[in-house]
Amino acid sequence: IAQETSFGLCHTQVRMLLLCHALAVAVVQTFIFSENWAFAKNINFYNVRPPLDPTPFPNSFKCFTCENAGDNYNCNRWAEDKWCPQNTQYCLTVHHFTSHGRSTFITKKCASRSECHFVGCHHSQDSEHTECRSCCEGMICNVELPTNHTNAVFAVMRAQRTSGSGAPSLYLPALAWALMLPLI
């Protein structure tokens, strides 16, 4: 009988230890998940770098993409990470918001030049909503939302200098000569 009592006591202690261990694991996991959630709100979308996977064609690019998202954060956070089709050159953002500035929905996508002709803001008198559209050129350039005529624009990068320019090659020898002259 004494052996049965000690076995019952030992079995109870093991069950309590297992219960305490499971509770401790649950508390730690809850802390980790809640901390990750808090940090997720602080994502810097300007620092997003696409993975170094092969591009499907020359001058390929990606845009933040979402359809009827409730806010800019969720649109950018859950945007699909896929290459834009070859018949597109720009990233389009369409922002609908109330007269108080609260976003009602946001759509971001890859766009052709013809889709970018109608940038700007348009106020709807009957629904008290405003729609602002902007287009930009470049890898995931559509981070921000257009909210007025200042930022609801068609932003195109300036032409880049070709590698055939001779100016930079003359600059380095002149700099080297200027640095060596005092040593002579």
Rank of each mutant, 00 (worst) to 15 (best):
L9G: 14
F7Y: 11
S34W: 02
V27F: 03
C10E: 13
I32V: 00
L19W: 07
L23T: 07
A24Q: 10
V14P: 00
F7E: 14
T5G: 00
F7P: 00
F31E: 08
A22R: 12
S34P: 00
Q29Y: 06
V27H: 02
H21Q: 10
I32L: 01
H11V: 06
A24Y: 14
A26P: 02
G8R: 04
A22C: 07
F7M: 13
T5M: 09
V14S: 06
V27L: 05
F31N: 10
E35Q: 06
E35K: 05
L9N: 15
A26H: 02
N36W: 05
T12N: 09
L9F: 11
A24V: 08
N36H: 07
L19M: 09
C20L: 15
L19Y: 07
T5N: 07
F33V: 05
Q13R: 13
A26M: 02
A26R: 00
G8I: 03
A22V: 07
H21N: 10
R15W: 06
S34Q: 04
F33D: 05
V27R: 01
A22L: 12
G8P: 01
C10K: 14
W37N: 02
Q13G: 13
R15M: 11
C20H: 11
F33I: 04
L18K: 15
A22G: 07
G8S: 03
V25F: 07
T12Y: 14
V27C: 01
G8T: 02
Q13P: 00
W37R: 02
A24R: 09
H21K: 08
S34K: 02
A26E: 03
I32Y: 02
H11A: 10
T30H: 10
Q13N: 13
S6D: 10
L23M: 05
V25E: 05
N36L: 13
L17F: 08
L23I: 06
T5S: 06
